[in-house]
């Protein structure tokens, strides 16, 4: 299966979805006006990955900013991974936030409250 690789832009994050290693990375900013257009290919990739997943899947969320349009799309992405979890793959979320960035830490807690996946909160100096 092909990896999904997108370079970051002023309003969209870097994406590296690596099927071989079961590692999904989102890094940077996600503030597009219409996030559905951006997230649609990510959903499609996860759907086809779900047909032949690795025994362990980790999504690394290293976002500096995201807007509310993206927040809903992220939730939908987590929901897809939630459905994948426990069957053919054990899915974990690594949620990164910069020190002092309470808003990003809280955003991670928001998803943790909604999504039944193990979350690891990771504080770093800089994303």
């Amino acid at each position: 299966m092909e990896n999904l690789q997108l370079v970051s832009s002023a309003k969209t994050p870097e994406v590296l979805f690596d099927a071989e290693n079961g590692k999904l990375l989102l890094k940077g900013r996600s503030i597009p006006e219409n996030s559905i257009e951006f997230y649609k290919p990510l959903y499609d990739w996860v759907d086809s990955y779900a047909g032949q997943p690795k025994s362990e899947t980790t999504i690394e969320v290293m976002l500096e900013y995201f807007n509310t349009s993206s927040s809903k799309c992220l939730l939908d992405l987590f929901k897809k991974l939630e459905r994948l979890n426990g069957g053919a793959s054990a899915v974990a979320v690594h949620w990164y936030f910069e020190e002092d960035d309470e808003d990003m830490a809280e955003a991670g807690e928001d998803y943790q409250a909604i999504i039944k996946l193990p979350f690891k909160m990771i504080e770093v100096n800089e994303i």
């Binding site: 597009p32 927040s71 809903k72 928001d110 909604i114």
Partner: peptide, 18 residues
């Protein structure tokens, strides 16, 4: 916010009402 996030759908414009 959490309740709205969980129940909202994204409009064609990309807005989530949040």
């Amino acid at each position: 916010y959490q309740a709205s996030l969980n129940s909202s759908t994204v409009s064609a414009k990309g807005t989530a009402g949040l």
